[in-house]
Amino acid sequence: MVTPTVVKTIAIQTFEQFLRQCPEEGRFEWVHGEIIEMVNTREHIDVAAFLTKMLDREVDRLNLNYVVRQEVYIRTPLTTGKTQGRIPDISVIDRDQWRSNRGTLGALTEPIQLAVEVVSTNWETDYFDKLDEYQRLGIKEYWIVDYLAIGSRDILGEPKEPTVFIYTLNGEGVYDRQAFQGQQNLVSPTFSELVLTPEQIFNA
Score class of each variant (00 low, 15 high):
3 T>Y: 14
4 P>K: 13
5 T>R: 05
6 V>G: 12
10 I>E: 14
13 Q>W: 09
13 Q>G: 10
14 T>N: 07
17 Q>S: 03
18 F>P: 04
19 L>A: 06
22 C>I: 03
25 E>A: 13
26 G>Y: 09
32 H>T: 12
32 H>R: 14
34 E>A: 03
34 E>P: 00
35 I>S: 05
36 I>S: 03
39 V>F: 02
42 R>D: 11
42 R>H: 13
43 E>M: 01
45 I>A: 13
48 A>E: 10
52 T>Y: 10
52 T>D: 09
57 R>K: 03
59 V>R: 02
61 R>Y: 13
61 R>K: 15
61 R>C: 05
63 N>S: 15
63 N>H: 11
64 L>A: 11
66 Y>A: 09
66 Y>D: 06
66 Y>W: 13
67 V>Q: 08
71 E>S: 11
74 I>L: 15
77 P>Y: 09
79 T>H: 07
79 T>C: 04
82 K>Q: 08
82 K>M: 06
85 G>D: 05
87 I>N: 09
88 P>E: 09
89 D>N: 12
89 D>V: 07
90 I>V: 12
94 D>L: 02
94 D>G: 10
95 R>T: 01
96 D>K: 14
96 D>G: 07
98 W>N: 05
100 S>W: 00
100 S>F: 00
101 N>V: 05
102 R>W: 04
103 G>Q: 04
103 G>P: 00
104 T>Y: 08
106 G>Y: 09
106 G>I: 03
107 A>H: 01
110 E>M: 08
113 Q>M: 07
114 L>K: 08
115 A>N: 00
117 E>G: 07
117 E>S: 13
119 V>M: 05
121 T>W: 00
124 E>I: 05
131 L>F: 15
138 G>Q: 11
139 I>F: 01
140 K>I: 06
140 K>Y: 09
141 E>S: 11
145 V>I: 15
146 D>C: 03
149 A>F: 08
150 I>F: 04
151 G>T: 06
153 R>E: 15
153 R>Y: 06
158 E>Y: 03
158 E>C: 02
159 P>I: 04
159 P>N: 02
161 E>M: 13
165 F>A: 12
167 Y>A: 15
167 Y>K: 11
168 T>W: 04
169 L>G: 07
169 L>W: 03
169 L>I: 07
169 L>E: 07
171 G>T: 10
171 G>D: 15
171 G>L: 14
172 E>R: 13
173 G>A: 06
174 V>L: 03
175 Y>M: 02
177 R>H: 02
178 Q>M: 14
178 Q>C: 10
180 F>D: 05
181 Q>A: 09
183 Q>Y: 00
184 Q>K: 11
184 Q>V: 02
185 N>W: 02
185 N>D: 12
186 L>Y: 12
187 V>I: 10
187 V>E: 12
190 T>G: 08
190 T>F: 06
190 T>L: 15
191 F>L: 14
192 S>I: 13
192 S>Y: 07
193 E>N: 12
194 L>A: 09
195 V>T: 12
196 L>P: 10
198 P>L: 02
198 P>C: 02
199 E>N: 15
202 F>K: 13
